[in-house]
């Protein structure tokens, strides 16, 4: 059987979901954002909730998320996505409302909004991309940048006396009574992609069950910011990011 015989609609096993449109994404080659976007789009398609989902895009690389997923979106001021999501979900309780935020957005400028949305137990899903760097602005130090990790604002590596410790905000959110599901995932292998998809789906489902806030941290790469190839970035992430931000569920009720 040759290739042209195999390439037949009846043999189709994997295709881009139509929820993700054909606009080419602006992300750098190999960026984790694309995989996570794809997973969210697939979940929206599989759950058949395209008409019931409202996404909140952050400031950062994912500011243009609204260009790629064909759902209604609001783009928030830097860090304020959980405040927008709070109001939207309270006014439209039968909608799926999720935020998509990076580490600078969620764990630095938006710390207050994040913690208080979680503390109120808003019935939203928070998708948190942690790549330990500010990608969009050119690779500056983030709250989650590892000790010794170089960035354009920690060119000699993050120094604890100067910059403080990497902020493990997900651990903090797991302690809050308002959260029902807090998990840390990655998308660097087939297995991790599958697990991450299940986690995001669970977060979406929770938001309709009045259980509280779900947080899915996705430890990610920023190969441009890290100045490595995408494959090297994945390896570096496993070796260096995972010990600081270990994989798995922190809370699941």
């Amino acid at each position: 059987m040759n290739v042209t015989d195999i390439i037949n609609p009846s043999n189709l096993v994997y295709d881009k979901t139509s929820v993700m449109n054909d606009t080419p994404m602006h992300y750098c080659p190999g960026c984790s954002h694309g995989v996570v976007h794809k997973l969210i789009a697939e979940i929206i398609e599989e759950m058949d909730i395209q008409d019931k989902t409202i996404g909140i895009a952050p400031v950062g690389c994912a500011v243009f998320a609204y260009k790629y997923l064909d759902i209604d979106w609001q783009q928030a001021a830097h860090g304020r996505a959980p405040a927008l999501a709070t109001a939207i979900k309270r006014l439209l309780p039968d909608r799926y409302v999720f935020t998509y935020q990076g580490d600078g957005d969620l764990a630095a400028i938006g710390t207050a909004e994040t913690i208080h949305a979680c503390n109120r137990g808003e019935n939203i899903a928070i998708i948190f991309i942690n790549n330990g760097i500010y990608g969009m602005t050119g690779g500056q130090m983030a709250p989650t940048t590892l000790e010794g990790m170089k960035s354009s604002t920690s060119p000699h590596g993050r120094e604890i006396p100067l910059n403080g410790y990497p902020l493990n905000i997900t651990n903090l959110l797991a302690q809050m009574d308002g959260t029902c599901y807090v998990t840390r995932q990655a998308v660097h292998t087939v297995a991790s992609v599958r697990k991450c998809k299940k986690a995001i789906q669970k977060a979406f489902e929770n938001s309709m069950q009045n259980k509280g806030t779900s947080v899915v941290e996705i430890v990610s790469t920023c190969n441009s910011g890290w100045k490595m190839t995408p494959d090297e970035s994945n390896k570096w992430m496993v070796e260096n990011m995972f010990p600081e931000y270990p994989m798995g569920d922190l809370k699941n009720i």
Binding site: M1, V3, D5, I6, I7, N8, N11, L12, V13, Y14, D15, K16, T17, M20, P24, M25, Y27, P29, G30, C31, S32, H33, G34, V35, K38, V187, H188, T189, V190, V193, R194
Partner: peptide, 27 residues
């Protein structure tokens, strides 16, 4: 596909593709 004969249609490539540019067929 450099070696199309080897493909088993496992979709691993499509899962990890950040730009959703791979369609997979399997028989």
């Amino acid at each position: 596909m450099e070696e199309p004969e080897n493909c088993i249609g496992c979709s691993a490539c499509a899962y990890v593709c950040p730009d959703a540019c791979i369609t997979v067929y399997k028989v």
